[in-house]
Design a protein around this nucleic acid. Structure first.
Lengths: 121, 121
DNA sequence: GGTATATTTAACCCAGCGGTTATTTAACCG
DNA sequence: CGGTTAAATAACCGCTGGGTTAAATATACC
């Protein structure tokens, strides 16, 4: 089976824009043509068109053709690559939460004794 | 509890660079000072320094001070935000895999009958 | 203080991004 | 055919990003 080629840079770059993430969020509710995707944004059509091209080149969406409309839909593969990538770091945030948990317990314990406020050194 | 402020744009932007992802990968094995982080790369120190600043401003790493060294470590919070974000789309790739599964079954079934190769239209 | 090491800052360069307006292409409708 | 709608392309603009080299800063060591 083929090693997932490294698309991560273009994927992350595509996801780094709030307009594009909003478009993806909209597409999560179903296919939509360009004009409909454009509606929520105070932005010219060419701008939207460019965003869609970025998403398409990143492999995050696919476009088909229906008469004069170009319905877009989410393409899942690259999103999974992101999920797989970030999964490698899961232990870090779980470990942090563990530490937070410990800290809270410790804090609670100390509170019983006295609530002295800490000062700057 | 506070809604996770939207750091996603800066986080994704920071992750869109392979050098920075490599630095994170290195830091996943433990803290390291700048010069050590720089070693694998054919790149000037200021370039690395800039990458670290991007990661820091994105909240992906934290830097402390030990004598003239500035050891860096991974900061997990933003990575979790990425994981949470992408999790919202999980159904898409799982659904795709379901469809792939169906397709493979169907293909296997057809193979039994005849293996005609498809031609360009 | 003087020097060596680690790291950051400054100043600069060029490519690419995100937006614009104006124009062009494609498809439907009558 | 002509007119309308949907979408993409072209050409342009200002800003940022990622790199460089050279200089500045911070800290240890003698």
């Amino acid at each position: 089976m083929q090693m997932t080629t490294d698309h991560l840079s273009s994927t992350f770059a595509a996801l780094a824009d709030p307009t594009r993430r909003a478009i993806l969020a909209r597409l999560a509710t179903g296919e939509a043509p360009v004009t409909e995707l454009a509606k929520p944004f105070d932005m010219s059509m060419p701008a939207i068109s460019k965003h869609l091209k970025v998403l398409e080149r990143a492999g995050l969406i696919a476009r088909s053709r229906e008469a004069q409309w170009r319905p877009c839909r989410i393409e899942a593969g690259r999103l999974k690559e992101v999920a797989d990538w970030v999964e490698e770091y899961r232990r870090f945030w779980e470990q942090s939460l563990d530490r937070l948990d410990e800290y809270l317990k410790e804090l609670k314990h100390k509170e019983k004794n006295h609530g002295r406020k800490q000062r700057k050194p």
